[in-house]
């Protein structure tokens, strides 16, 4: 959770990368808070509360299993962090509104990942939603040869959930909900899992579904 000048609540952001002495975040300007962040100058301080919640379990890939990442928009941030912590390359399915909003492609390519893209305006890859790219990978996922990690908007995760149910596999998904505290205090950030509302900031944001 990042303290933002002029806004009362902190803003939830995923860690994009960690290297010696540097923690990076990547965000899209969508409203007041992210706009204020973007206007800060180099050298100004921000107040960060974190890391919070449960991430993807690195090291859960068994021998021979390959990762499939599905990123929607800024969902690429947490998957980039995960990619740095797993020992093998896989396939990145990446969807965004338009080509200009895609980042990190070079980083994944250099590490030997296969990349498939989709954009809503057709400016890169398939015209449409990233969930449509999942189609070709269903056999691998259903047989357990591949493991899916997904991060993106609610609609994307929900669609992926429907597909996974039909094809009979479970996957790791990182959820986004409005957050007031990020530490489990307010019970505000809930999402419904198995008929019960659970806190995304505390029990998640990554859930196995």
């Amino acid at each position: 959770m990042i303290g933002v000048p002029g806004a009362y609540l902190r803003r939830p952001l995923s860690v994009f990368s960690v290297s010696k002495g540097v923690v990076e975040f990547v965000y899209k300007v969508v409203g007041r808070g992210t706009e204020a962040l973007s206007e800060m100058k180099a050298g100004e301080e921000i107040n960060v509360l974190g890391p919070l919640g449960n991430g993807y379990e690195a090291g859960l890939l068994k021998n021979g299993q390959k990762p499939v990442f599905m990123a929607g928009g800024t969902g690429i941030a947490s998957l980039n962090f995960l990619a740095a912590r797993i020992d093998r390359a896989g396939t990145l399915l990446y969807g965004a509104k338009t080509k200009g909003e895609m980042i990190c492609l070079e980083v994944f390519r250099k590490k030997g990942w296969d990349i498939e893209t989709a954009t809503e305006d057709g400016s890169a890859g398939k015209k449409g939603f990233v969930t449509e790219l999942l189609e070709d990978h269903l056999p691998g996922l259903a047989s357990g040869r591949n493991v899916l990690f997904a991060c993106g908007p609610h609609a994307m995760i929900e669609n992926a959930g429907k597909i996974s149910k039909k094809s009979g596999f479970s996957f790791w998904a990182s959820f986004e909900e409005k957050m007031a505290c990020g530490t489990g205090l307010c019970q505000g950030c809930v999402t419904e899992i198995n008929g019960e509302y659970v806190r995304v900031c505390k029990e998640g944001p990554v859930f196995k579904i």
Partner: peptide, 8 residues
């Protein structure tokens, strides 16, 4: 149901 909080 969510959203359950909003900034003021």
């Amino acid at each position: 149901p969510p959203p359950r909080t909003a900034e003021a």
